Amino acid sequence: MLRFLLVVFFCLGVIKFGKAQEITWLSFEQLDDSLKIKPKPVIISFYTDWCVYCKKMDKEVYSKAAIIKEISQNYYAVKFDAETKIPIQFDGKTFHKKMQFHELALLLGAKEKQFTPPVTLILDSNFVVKSRWFEYLSSDKLLKILKTN
């Protein structure tokens, strides 16, 4: 019986450690709290449900071990549906959906007053925008951006 239990625990350990890691995506509210406790850079990924390139980034970029490791070790990560109808509390203010897109998506991710997903932002630990990307980013390109910011 003891041998059986040891084999089961060993197998569970192998399965647990062999499992693919994932990025821990925070909400804006969680980010607000986290930045107050321990400031560090932030990556924000704005998406919509209908955006083909957003889905491609989820499947081909945010699933890569090197991306997961870099983001997990050095950034807070926020993934935000630009069309959500949910009011968001952040930095002492409440943001709402305006027309098609949410106010936060328009405020942070618009280019020339237009919002077109995917949009990726890199911010410093003081929540100052360092770079904005208004395109699909390959895993190589995103990794280079993450390491240089």
Score class of each variant (00 low, 15 high):
residue 113 K to F: 15
residue 95 F to C: 07
residue 50 W to N: 08
residue 147 K to N: 10
residue 138 S to L: 06
residue 20 A to P: 13
residue 76 Y to M: 06
residue 48 T to D: 10
residue 60 E to W: 03
residue 6 L to Y: 07
residue 59 K to W: 04
residue 110 A to N: 14
residue 143 L to Y: 07
residue 10 F to D: 08
residue 105 A to M: 10
residue 44 I to E: 09
residue 105 A to T: 05
residue 136 Y to R: 00
residue 75 Y to R: 03
residue 24 T to C: 04
residue 77 A to Q: 04
residue 49 D to N: 15
residue 134 F to P: 00
residue 58 D to C: 01
residue 93 K to E: 08
residue 105 A to K: 06
residue 19 K to R: 14
residue 33 D to P: 00
residue 3 R to F: 11
residue 98 K to Q: 14
residue 116 T to S: 12
residue 131 S to T: 13
residue 144 K to H: 14
residue 117 P to S: 14
residue 133 W to L: 01
residue 27 S to A: 02
residue 71 I to F: 05
residue 50 W to L: 11
residue 142 L to I: 02
residue 2 L to A: 10
residue 47 Y to G: 08
residue 110 A to K: 09
residue 71 I to C: 12
residue 101 F to D: 06
residue 46 F to N: 05
residue 82 A to W: 02
residue 3 R to C: 10
residue 74 N to Y: 09
residue 84 T to Y: 01
residue 57 M to A: 07
residue 59 K to R: 15
residue 63 S to N: 09
residue 43 I to A: 10
residue 59 K to S: 07
residue 123 L to E: 07
residue 94 T to M: 04
residue 139 S to N: 06
residue 135 E to W: 04
residue 92 G to A: 12
residue 124 D to Y: 08
residue 70 E to G: 06
residue 33 D to C: 00
residue 24 T to Q: 14
residue 120 T to R: 03
residue 124 D to M: 11
residue 42 V to T: 08
residue 124 D to Q: 05
residue 43 I to E: 12
residue 96 H to C: 05
residue 85 K to Y: 11
residue 53 Y to I: 00
residue 109 G to L: 04
residue 23 I to C: 08
residue 18 G to E: 13
residue 14 V to T: 13
residue 80 F to T: 04
residue 85 K to M: 12
residue 101 F to K: 12
residue 131 S to A: 14
residue 30 Q to N: 06
residue 119 V to N: 02
residue 73 Q to E: 15
residue 68 I to Y: 07
residue 128 V to P: 02
residue 32 D to R: 00
residue 88 I to M: 02
residue 42 V to W: 02
residue 19 K to T: 13
residue 65 A to E: 15
residue 95 F to W: 11
residue 116 T to K: 13
residue 62 Y to P: 08
residue 83 E to K: 09
residue 122 I to R: 02
residue 31 L to M: 07
residue 116 T to Q: 10
residue 96 H to D: 11
residue 96 H to K: 10
residue 2 L to S: 11
residue 80 F to R: 04
residue 96 H to I: 13
residue 49 D to T: 11
residue 63 S to I: 00
residue 3 R to V: 15
residue 80 F to W: 06
residue 113 K to G: 00
residue 26 L to T: 02
residue 75 Y to V: 04
residue 41 P to A: 08
residue 94 T to V: 10
residue 102 H to E: 07
residue 19 K to A: 13
residue 67 I to W: 00
residue 125 S to N: 15
residue 135 E to L: 00
residue 16 K to L: 13
residue 46 F to T: 05
residue 104 L to S: 02
residue 70 E to W: 10
residue 55 K to S: 11
residue 50 W to F: 05
residue 55 K to C: 01
residue 61 V to E: 12
residue 48 T to Q: 10
residue 88 I to D: 01
residue 138 S to H: 06
residue 55 K to P: 03
residue 42 V to R: 03
residue 98 K to I: 15
